[in-house]
C-alpha cells in the first residue's frame, strides 16, 4: 500500500530574496554557484571577484568548493546551488561528509524542479530527502529551512558554525530575471583566484 502523502506546507521563500539575505553578510566568504538560476541569484547581489560562477559541470559545484575550502582554510566557502545540480553529484556529499572541512557550507535552493529547462520535477518533488542524505553522509544537524524566520535563525550557522554545514531552503519555482553574468571561464576563474590568493598568475 502506498504511503499517504501528507500535504506539504506552502512554500513561501523566494530564491532571490533568500540569496540576497544570505549574501548580505558574506564578509570575505568565497561563493561557488551551481549551474542554472543559482548563477543569476548570486550575481543579482552584485558581481564580485570572490564569486565563482559555474555555468556548466552539473554536479560539480560542491567538489569545486571543497577544493577551494582545503586551499583557503581561513575563509568561509559557500556553495549556492539547486536541488537538480546537487542530485547530479550526490556522491560528493559522502566525500565531503567523510572529509569534514570546517569552512565549507552548502546551501541548496530546493524548488523541486529543473528551473532552467522548463520546471520538470526533480527527485526531491517525489520525496527524496536531501537533508536526510546529508545527515547520513556525516553532516552534523543539516537544516531544513522553509520560511523567512527559519532563514534568519540559520544565518549565523551558515557563516560561523564549524562545517561542513548543509542546509536546504525550500523555495518557490518563481525565478528572478536573468542577468548579464560574466561567462568567460578564463576571466571568472583568474579573477576569483587572484581574489583568493591576493596575487595575479
Amino acid at each position: 500500500m502506498a504511503a499517504r502523502k501528507t500535504k506539504p506546507a506552502a512554500v513561501t521563500l523566494e530564491r532571490r530574496k533568500a540569496v540576497t539575505r544570505i549574501l548580505s553578510r558574506r564578509g570575505d566568504a568565497a561563493v561557488v554557484t551551481g549551474i542554472g538560476n543559482a548563477v543569476h541569484d548570486v550575481a543579482s547581489c552584485g558581481d564580485d571577484a570572490r564569486n565563482m560562477y559555474l555555468a556548466g559541470i552539473m554536479g560539480g559545484a560542491s567538489m569545486v568548493a571543497f577544493g577551494v575550502a582545503l586551499a583557503q582554510p581561513k575563509r568561509r566557502v559557500l556553495v549556492i546551488t539547486g536541488d537538480g545540480e546537487l542530485l547530479a553529484g550526490i556522491g560528493s556529499l559522502a566525500t565531503i561528509g567523510v572529509e569534514k572541512p570546517k569552512n565549507l557550507a552548502i546551501v541548496v535552493l530546493d524548488n523541486q524542479a529543473y528551473g532552467a529547462t522548463g520546471n520538470q520535477l526533480t527527485h526531491t518533488a517525489a520525496g527524496v530527502d536531501l537533508v536526510g542524505i546529508a545527515a547520513a553522509s556525516g553532516f552534523a544537524d543539516p537544516a531544513l529551512i522553509t520560511d523567512a524566520a527559519g532563514l534568519e535563525a540559520a544565518m549565523a550557522d551558515i557563516y560561523d558554525r564549524p562545517g561542513p554545514y548543509f542546509a536546504v531552503l525550500k523555495v518557490k519555482t518563481v525565478t528572478g530575471s536573468r542577468l548579464d553574468v560574466p561567462r568567460d571561464g578564463t576571466y571568472v576563474s583568474r579573477r576569483f583566484r587572484a581574489a583568493m590568493t591576493g596575487r595575479e598568475g
Partner: peptide
C-alpha cells in the same frame, strides 16, 4: 569529483 576538486584547489591557490 576529483576533476572538480582539482579545479577548486587551483582556484584557491
Amino acid at each position: 569529483e576529483g576533476v572538480a576538486q582539482m579545479a577548486g584547489a587551483w582556484l584557491g591557490g
